[in-house]
Design a protein around this nucleic acid. Structure first.
Lengths: 160, 160
DNA sequence: CAAAATCGTTATGATCTATATCTATAAAGC
DNA sequence: GCTTTATAGATATAGATCATAACGATTTTG
């Protein structure tokens, strides 16, 4: 009945319970998000893209000629923080940034041919990695996941 | 058939499609997480707690006498970054931090009476806010959400 | 034409995150 | 035992993220 210590100078491997935190749905979402973000980071590294730059490319591709203000809003990023992102993408020749004649305050963002190609390659890799993360999960459950997440998002944003 | 511009100097309200990003489950999780994190932030503000400090208190309450290294691992935080958190909580008298006689390298973290009381109050508020975010969602779907998130987490961590 | 608002931008600070390194302690290997 | 190796907590530091104020240029409002 002696206390059987782990011995060794090895790391403290005693089990730590996170049951209380796990009761909160938000905590589970955060943990899953950490995993996904980490995986996404490694997936995008070969393309020299980050989550923001990839998301920006995707939104620009889906909404040609949108402005930085629109993109910032869609990305949930403050406009000043988007400037460097745009600068980086434009500097790499992945997007074009043209002053709009009808409103010379705004920039019209568009994918270049090179940007569209890189986006397509990155998207393929991202989808493949996400498929691995979702491996073994019933598609119906994923549909439920989407629905529930959407509802949480609406509950939190509309109710302000 | 004229182009009906928003006119005004008002913000660009043209609809921006994020359909492509929405196809990725990870993007939906991130958006829901943003909402939850924002709500949690306002919920914890009255208690002068952040997500880390709240999580730390919860884990310490659930695992009395755990070490900082254990806590850091459970929180997915680097040990150096936990030091200030512990310092803050100890400075406010919410936790005690005692050198362990059997291993004088490690600290045993425990909630003080005051810390336990604050944690209980904060937890009540957090649960109430989370219930609002989950309002109108079928409990069975929430169970599915938990299961799917857990699977994603395991798929991402075990497969390394 | 004057006033107000928006766009992109710059500057700046606060916060978060990761890494290298130090000490003191403890265990492992010979 | 004594040396080597490893861990715990802490310090310092750099990088990345994120939020806010303010400016010039431009456009719309009144």
């Amino acid at each position: 009945m002696a206390d059987r210590r782990p011995a060794r100078t090895a790391p403290d491997t005693r089990h730590v319970s996170d049951d209380a935190l796990r009761q909160l749905v938000g905590f589970n979402i955060k943990r899953a998000m950490n995993v996904i973000a980490g995986d996404l980071r490694t997936t995008l590294t070969p393309f020299e893209l980050r989550m923001v730059t990839y998301s920006a490319l995707t939104l620009i591709g889906d909404n040609p000629s949108l402005s930085q203000a629109q993109l910032a809003a869609a990305l949930s990023v403050e406009r000043p923080n988007l400037v460097n992102v745009i600068e980086e993408l434009a500097g790499r020749g992945l997007i074009s940034r043209d002053r709009v004649p009808t409103d010379r305050r705004t920039n019209a963002l568009r994918l270049t041919t090179q940007g569209a190609r890189l986006l397509a390659q990155a998207t393929e890799a991202v989808r493949a990695h996400e498929a691995q993360l979702l491996d073994g999960i019933d598609p119906a459950d994923i549909a439920t996941l989407r629905a529930v997440l959407g509802r949480i998002e609406r509950n939190g944003t509309e109710r302000i």
